[in-house]
């Protein structure tokens, strides 16, 4: 039988089968772990931030294929962005970059956004001075 029948599109399957940035960051500058109220899945994103810029991002996910692909894509997308830019990140970016997700699976991409924001929040708690940077950038 053909192997071309898959539950998700090729991009999603690729990120599920070959996840980018999977893992943890040792002594991360910010770590966010969130759970999806809808289905009970869990996602964790760790960030290394230098000079207000995201140098590295890693994820770990307990969740469906679309959650794993979303976290892989989200970490890909935010690397290199400033903290202020990353604060504006939306799950729609993940959905678009993945070439779309089934409607019932949109919440998995929301989980990626939430995990990222939780990591940024953790970072700003640990680095209150970064808030000033943020103002500088958004001003």
């Amino acid at each position: 039988m053909s192997e071309t029948y898959t539950l998700y599109n090729n991009t999603v399957m690729d990120h599920f089968m070959n996840p980018r940035n999977m893992g943890d960051i040792k002594d991360a500058d910010g770590v966010g772990e969130v759970g999806a109220a809808a289905c009970g899945d869990i996602m964790k994103i760790s960030l290394r931030i230098k000079d207000g810029k995201i140098e590295d991002a890693r994820f770990k996910t307990f969740g469906c294929g679309s959650a794993i692909a979303s976290s892989s894509m989200a970490t890909e997308l935010i690397k290199g962005r400033t903290v202020a830019e990353a604060m504006q990140f939306s799950n729609q970016e993940v959905v678009d970059a993945l070439g779309g997700l089934p409607p019932v699976k949109i919440h998995c991409s929301v989980l990626a956004e939430e995990a990222l924001k939780a990591a940024l929040e953790d970072y700003s708690k640990k680095h209150p001075e970064s808030l000033n940077d943020k103002k500088a950038v958004t001003a």
């Binding site: 599920f16 289905c39 307990f62 969740g63 294929g65 959650a67």
Partner: peptide
């Protein structure tokens, strides 16, 4: 410590057809 849909998908990618009762 792992979720069912991921197991199902990876089984499928290895030619093994299974079902799952996970919420996902």
């Amino acid at each position: 410590f792992i979720e069912g849909e991921g197991q199902l998908l990876l089984c499928d990618m290895n030619g093994i057809a299974v079902a799952s009762g996970s919420s996902c």
